[in-house]
Design a binder for these strands. Structure first.
Lengths: 232, 232
DNA sequence: GGCAGGTTCAAACGGATGTTTGAAACTGTC
DNA sequence: GACAGTTTCAAACATCCGTTTGAACCTGCC
């Protein structure tokens, strides 16, 4: 990392490692683990093919290193500071989550890689879930539990949390379709606030309704099983 | 073209085409377009490598044919029959959508391929959006507009539709994470009804709240921009 | 300078993949 | 049976990929 030991060229020995990590993050994010080629990564990093073996071992170890190094901090609120109202906490969560997804530069690579892991898991996904997804999932679950109040099963709480997260991830996972279907709806810095507000309002309203209505499992299904839209 | 010309073996000439399509659907769904190999497809189909060239041209044409032939019917309600209440229509939509996603056999391949197209688009995605996604998107938009009543911009209607669809797709796109995070929450035939009911209740409650509250753009943001969860 | 350790380099290896080829096998028709 | 058209076959081709190799290069130290 740090010490530039001043050679004839500015690129000193072990910052090749950094160049490789940066290049790999971009290529892995853009093409996925399998479709990415070490040749592309090395070309972009301005490094030799063998540099990957020397600095990391092999392609998979490089991938693991990229995931480990580009993971943003878990973004837990600074302990000790007075917490804002629950609804504001939810909005802040949704907003920062969306902002992280909308990120385009290096900060966005982690999100792209994670989206690919969902559809095409590699052995690295287990660590990713354990150390990155699970903490945030549990944080959101506690917030939802506080928001909803007592009388909800943990399964209900989890479903609500899923409903919230899903609305955010939609703008990442379905961006390819959205850009072809309704380009104006694609997540961008200009409509990020509006989308965050929509998801917050949508979710808070649903939670409030759950709270006011019967807490018991449910007052019978919404309607009889009369179905008019056969699945095929 | 298609006439089965009865040979000694049951596998007559041009049903090799059908075998290739079926095998290709499975392999493409399981591994994605890039990672799938024509050798695997041909081995599973019991066909020769050159059969792909003969029957389709190349791998990409085979992929396009698979997408075209395995696409389930758009699932529009049978015209002329008396439509159920709007809320029931929404529940039916969500339920059949979830059921299609939960599908595991041949019927599920299309959903898997589509999920992959989202994170890793191929040239085939444009047709997919045009002929498969767009009709359903517009159908849902009309339903949401009827549910919400007058006074909503089309952008608001679209956002609500996105919120509904996202909650369903979550169980497809995030299944890899969900199975590691909360396996009990994974979409399965046993909890399909419960999940469909949850998403329906969640969405209807939010829509009802939108309807009752101010229709104008919005009564100021939920709170001041005080943020306690820095994005990194 | 000489040396040792760390780092980079061009070149090749072994394997996998999409595609192509030219001939063989099969089909129905005369 | 001979023939033309269709369909399948084994084999090879050309390319690309991840990995490996052995030598060159650089750096700091004696």
């Amino acid at each position: 990392m740090g010490k530039p030991s001043r050679s004839s060229h500015d690129s000193t020995s072990a910052d090749t490692r950094r160049q490789l990590l940066d290049a790999a993050a971009g290529v892995f994010a853009g093409r996925g683990f399998h479709h990415a080629t070490v040749r592309d990564i090395c070309r972009i990093a301005g490094a030799n093919l063998a540099a990957i073996r020397y600095h990391f071992g092999d392609k998979e170890a490089l991938y693991a290193a990229v995931l480990h190094e580009t993971a943003p901090a878990p973004a837990t609120p600074p302990a000790g500071s007075p917490l804002p109202p629950l609804a504001t906490q939810l909005r802040n969560f949704i907003h920062s989550f969306l902002a992280r997804i909308a990120e385009e530069g290096v900060a966005g690579h982690h999100g792209c890689i994670m989206a690919r892991e969902m559809v095409d898991p590699t052995p690295a996904l287990d660590d990713l879930v354990q150390h990155f997804i699970r903490p945030q999932h549990e944080w959101l679950q506690r917030l939802v539990r506080d928001l909803a109040g007592p009388g909800f099963s943990s399964a209900q709480i989890r479903r609500i949390a899923h409903s919230i997260v899903s609305q955010v991830l939609f703008y990442k996972h379905c961006n390819a379709a959205l850009s072809r279907l309704a380009p104006a709806d694609c997540l961008s810095p200009s409509n990020l606030d509006d989308i965050a507000d929509h998801i917050t309002r949508f979710s808070l309203a649903a939670i409030a309704s759950f709270k006011n209505s019967d807490d018991s499992p449910r007052p019978a299904r919404i309607s009889s099983r009369t179905r008019s839209r056969p699945s095929r």
